[in-house]
Design a protein around this nucleic acid. Structure first.
Length: 513
RNA sequence: GAGCUCGUAGCUCAGUCGGUAGAGCAACGCACUUUUAAUGCGUGGGUCCUGGGUUCGAUUCCCAGCGAGCUCACCA
């Protein structure tokens, strides 16, 4: 019965199950075409989205929709489309759940309503198929809002089996690799990305209202600057030019402030050639913003307002559950680094050392080791040692510290801000220090950026700048423990490579034997 | 990069103290015109991640590799 010789366009179907299923679905497509339906029609006109139907009639009671024999009502006719996520045949009738744009609506088909051809089509439908239906709304005995189908239109076929309908797609690797399945099979996953878009909208609205200009600066840069990180290298063929994927937009954004764009922000990808973890993906989305005539104190206020406002707008509350903690994004504390180390010093580590006697670097290490992961509630840490802050401006009355803060939520850093260094002579000096570090083997040290020094030489006004990790903020606002759960297609090792390597290994083994 | 854990049907998972494997969903057939994890009966589907070793015999034990998750390191 199965035509195993049928063309199969997907080379990876090596299992008999998938090959047979694919062939079977091809035959069903043929049968559907024989009923006069197009195999892959180009359009379908709906009158409503499923969300619109739910919004308008979701609360309408059964008696209003269904009427009675004595008191018939005018039927509400709608035309909707969606993917079949559940299907139940019952003799000469059947139900199916249509899912469209993350919302579901049930449909009811009976042969005496759609005719023999219509019901023949229904019987050829599978889980995952896309269809359009026209019919009237009613409520079933169990009070479920349902479309009583009068016309059934085939739209597209699922040639592969859907994940288990109760558990969905649970394998995290498959969820990341085949996000297209994850998104329609696990609506929770879809919700994360819908929320991510809302977060971005809220952030843009926040800055637009404050007369910041959204800009886009180069992602391919001849000198990768603005952060301490190893870049990815790429090459421009026509210009025969090596370029780096940016590790930060920082130096370009400050050039724009020199140019008189007093308030700018950019939301885009940064690329850092480092390992992956639950908090790191090689490409990640960063918000950076710069404000002329502001210093880091202004940015602290702005940050607290921003985070609370985005949470409120996206979640309707500033309280989030994250990793077993209840966090209020509207309640902040501000501590100097010294205060934070004193306050969060773990008793298990013995007595807290005399922090004033420590070098800046040693203090920072204590902070990272003992304090950072314990900063669950929103916390701004300020007064950073100059030694660990090569890009920020020293405090006027205290050259050992810089005007810098970072903020932490849920145990990790979410943002980093400072009063920008705007003295070109000092900037050149620091670049030269970085060059020396580079010579000494530090491949994360900055290269000299002559043009940036030149830009500063035209005069950068006193400026505050800040970077906020959007992926991490999204993790907090969606309760996601891994950054990969808030990135649609996180970096994964390709499976093709795996097969090749296994092939090589097999070849080697054969040679040895 | 290091440590720990995992990899069995399309999906979700059992299991084999070493004798080549099961369930549910999905698929196929039959019945069923208000079901909703529909139901009932029947059928098919597996290189047990890959390679090697030990063994009469490996999906199981050992080694190596590949992939993934978690923790750590680097970073934001």
């Amino acid at each position: 019965m199965l035509q195993t010789g049928k063309d199969c366009p997907v080379a990876e179907f090596e299992s008999e199950f998938e090959r047979n299923l694919f062939a079977l679905r091809q035959e069903k497509l043929d049968a559907i075409a024989a009923l006069g339906q197009a195999r892959y029609p180009n359009q379908y006109r709906t009158t409503h989205t499923i969300a619109a139907v739910r919004a308008q009639w979701g609360e309408t009671p059964a008696e209003t929709l269904n009427g009675t024999a004595e008191q018939p009502v005018e039927r509400v006719v709608v035309s909707i489309a969606g993917r079949i996520m559940a299907i139940r045949a019952q003799g000469k009738a059947g139900f199916a759940a249509l899912q469209q744009n993350g919302e579901r609506l049930q449909m009811y088909v009976r042969q005496d309503a759609v005719g023999e051809a219509g019901y023949a089509l229904y019987k050829l439908l599978d889980m995952g198929d896309h269809i359009g239906v026209t019919g009237y709304l009613f409520r079933t005995r169990t009070n479920e809002l349902t479309v009583h189908v009068e016309t059934l239109t085939f739209l597209a076929k699922a040639m592969l089996a859907l994940p288990e309908k109760y558990h969905g797609l649970a394998d995290v690797e498959l969820r990341y690799r085949q996000r297209y399945v994850d998104l329609f099979a696990n609506l929770d996953s879809r919700e994360v990305f819908v929320k991510r878009a809302k977060i971005l909208r809220a952030i843009r609205r926040f800055f637009d209202e404050r007369e910041y200009l959204e800009v886009e600066t180069p992602m391919m840069q001849p000198i990768a600057g603005g952060a301490a990180a190893r870049p990815f290298v790429t090459h421009h063929n026509a210009l025969d030019l090596d370029l780096f994927l940016r590790i930060a937009p920082e130096l370009y954004l400050k050039r724009l402030v020199v140019g008189g764009l007093d308030r700018v922000y950019e939301i885009n990808r940064n690329f850092r050639n480092e390992g992956v973890s639950t908090q790191h993906n090689p490409e990640f989305t960063m918000l950076e913003f710069y404000q002329a005539y502001a210093n880091y104190h202004d940015l602290m206020d702005l940050t607290e307002t921003l985070i609370a406002q985005v949470a409120q707008e996206v979640n309707g509350t500033t309280v989030v559950e994250f990793n077993g903690h209840t966090i209020d994004l509207a309640r902040w504390q501000r501590l100097t680094m010294v205060e934070a180390v004193r306050q969060y010093w773990p008793v298990a580590a013995g007595e807290c050392p005399d922090l004033t006697a420590l070098s800046g670097k040693a203090l920072y290490e204590l902070f990272e080791q003992h304090v950072e992961h314990r900063l669950i509630q929103p916390t701004i840490i300020h007064e950073y040692p100059t030694e660990v802050s090569p890009l920020s401006k020293a405090k006027p009355d205290d050259p050992a510290h810089v005007e810098r803060f970072e903020f932490f939520i849920g145990g990790f850093e979410v943002g980093n801000a400072f009063s920008e260094l705007n003295d070109p002579v000092e900037q050149r000096r620091r670049f030269e220090q970085q060059l020396a570090a580079r010579e000494a083997g530090d491949d994360e040290a900055h290269q000299m950026d002559e043009d940036y020094v030149r830009a500063l030489s035209y005069g950068l006004p006193p400026t505050g700048g800040e970077g906020i990790g959007i992926d991490r903020l999204t993790m907090l606002l969606t309760g996601s423990r891994s950054i990969r759960d808030v990135i649609l297609f996180p970096l994964m090792r390709p499976e093709a490579q795996r097969q090749e390597m296994q092939g090589e290994q097999a070849a080697d083994g054969g040679a040895e034997a």
